[in-house]
Amino acid sequence: MANAFAQLRDSDIWWSFKRSPVTVISAIVALICIVTAVAAPFIAPHNPFDVATLNLLDAFKPPAWIDEGEADYLLGTDDQGRDLLSAILYGARISLFVGISATVFAALVGVSVGLLAGFLGGTVDALLMRIADIQLTFPSILVALLVDGIVRAAVPREVHDQIALFVVVVAIGISEWPKFARPVRGSTMVERNKEYVLAARVIGVSSFRIMTGHVLPNVLGPVLVIATLNLGLAILAEATLSFLGVGVPPTQPSLGTLIRVGNDFLFSGEWWITIFPGVSLVIMVLSVNLLGDWLRDALNPKLR
């Protein structure tokens, strides 16, 4: 472990990380987002899901530094009287959960498909890649809407509410997998003809072992970069779905839900209900994207 740490400290990645102040700040911000989101139940001043503590009299309280604000509600309250800061912390938690899960799901599907298509080639490749092509002609949000619509039609309402979170994860994941599949397929096609793969084939190593043991570790490099860049997109996709009202259930509001709710009051003066969740979303996505940009450059030997 100590050895691994020393290796990291000595590596080119760490060096390029240290040299980029924007990246260091992004990393710190992203870390804060993740830690506060994960620890929301412990650090949030209120529990926005506890109906017992909600009081409609507390609704529409402005942020604490404005005249009518209360110190107890730092960023004010929404139309239900929920503490906005707590709602944002809990909302960020859901946004992050959906974003990361959807990205992991998309990566799993995309890497598997890309590896199979690239390694097997021929008809399998043509079929899988045409599916990816067709899917890429639809905007991913449309694909997500479609998946969500199909599930809504297929299962009863109460079941849907229970699985809504996973439906969103799958919907976003399905709309994003081609972004992983294509580069993985490309590098698989390069790797599978390299001589180390031929050497394994000469001794009769099975195709599955060659794919997982030899090719996979050598095509994963770009996947980390795509995943990081896609995480921001997935969080935005979730927010968009929730904003459109087809995302996570209203009982578990994400940042997107908060923005949608707040949007109704934006022009009646209660700007904080939508602006603070919006700013949180921008900060979170921006920091993740900047990290992804840096990672892409740092891992690209041509730009070093």
Partner: peptide, 29 residues
């Protein structure tokens, strides 16, 4: 029967340790 290849940079899996590369046929057989 075994084979030796042309490109010493492509014929060894860059992610494997040398001992695992050399041991691959031993383990496979």
């Amino acid at each position: 029967m075994q084979m030796i290849f042309q490109d010493p940079y492509a014929s060894l899996n860059p992610r494997w340790r040398v001992e695992d590369i050399v041991a691959e046929p031993i383990r496979a057989f």
